[in-house]
Amino acid sequence: MDEGLRERKKRETRERIADIAMGLFMARGFDDVTVAEVARAADVSVNTVFNYFGTKEDLFADRQDLAVDFPARVVAGREPGESVVRAFRRDFLDAIDTRHWRYGFNLGGDVFARIVQASPSLVARLREIHAERERSLARSLADAFDAAPGDLTPHTVAAQLLAVTRVLQEAAVRQMLAGESWETIAADLRSQAEAAFDLLEHGLGDYRGRTG
């Protein structure tokens, strides 16, 4: 169904408020900007801001619904005969190639990370989003593989998959914050990702480290 005029205007207003808020957060930091200041800059009332965003943190994480849904979409978008691990490997490598925001690889991802690190409330909110992603992915896996009630396998798999992508993402962001070029980061990240997904695909049984 095509988007109606009312829905389009609401979406555009929401996006405008979020964009203005992000500009203020980038300029001054999250904790030093009030919702009232965002409302004034967007030429709307504070109540209007809260009609679109439940909390100030939601203004910053305005794509959180998409972020939570992405892992389940990877499961749903598997190619015929493709395993879940291979689907996530393919998705992650594609994000490296396209510098997609879903893993924080976009231009400005380092700025986003700095703002989060400087705000305890944003750190907490991002932690909540990660937990929501894991629960959403676990539900998707349970549905896809018809898991029995009480079977912990879907949640175990979800936790492992998202832990790997999170570790890789955090490593890349650290390099971005250190000022390394994306070309250097991407080459190292691709190699590290291949090794990490190999471990997921083949298991940890042969991972012994140094033995002497």
Rank of each mutant, 00 (worst) to 15 (best):
R73V: 14
R73M: 15
V74K: 06
V75A: 13
V75D: 04
V75E: 07
G77T: 00
P80T: 07
E82H: 07
S83Y: 03
S83E: 00
V84Q: 00
V84H: 04
V85L: 12
V85D: 13
A87C: 08
F88G: 06
R90Q: 01
R90W: 00
D91A: 15
D91F: 09
D91N: 10
F92Q: 04
F92H: 00
F92N: 05
L93G: 01
L93E: 06
L93C: 02
D94V: 03
A95P: 02
A95F: 05
I96N: 01
D97Y: 05
D97I: 02
T98P: 07
T98L: 03
H100A: 13
W101Y: 12
W101V: 07
R102M: 07
G104L: 09
G104C: 10
F105Y: 14
F105V: 15
N106V: 03
N106Y: 01
L107C: 06
L107N: 07
G109Y: 11
D110C: 11
V111W: 11
V111C: 01
F112R: 15
F112Y: 15
F112E: 08
A113Q: 08
A113I: 03
R114T: 06
R114A: 10
R114V: 05
R114P: 03
I115D: 00
I115L: 03
V116M: 04
P120L: 05
P120M: 01
S121N: 11
L122G: 00
L122S: 08
L122K: 03
A124V: 04
A124T: 07
A124G: 01
R125N: 09
R125C: 11
R125L: 12
R125Q: 12
R127D: 15
R127H: 13
R127V: 12
E128Q: 08
E128D: 14
E128A: 13
I129F: 12
I129S: 12
E132M: 09
E132C: 08
R133H: 02
R133D: 05
E134P: 14
E134V: 14
R135A: 12
A138C: 08
A138S: 11
R139E: 04
R139Y: 06
S140V: 10
L141F: 00
L141D: 06
A142L: 09
A142P: 03
D143I: 02
D143W: 04
A144P: 05
A144S: 10
F145S: 08
F145H: 13
F145Y: 09
F145W: 11
F145G: 10
F145E: 14
D146I: 04
D146P: 01
D146F: 06
A147F: 10
A147K: 06
P149A: 05
G150I: 03
G150R: 04
D151G: 07
D151C: 07
L152D: 15
L152N: 14
T153M: 15
P154Q: 03
P154V: 02
T156D: 15
V157E: 13
V157Y: 04
A158S: 15
A159R: 12
A159I: 08
A159T: 12
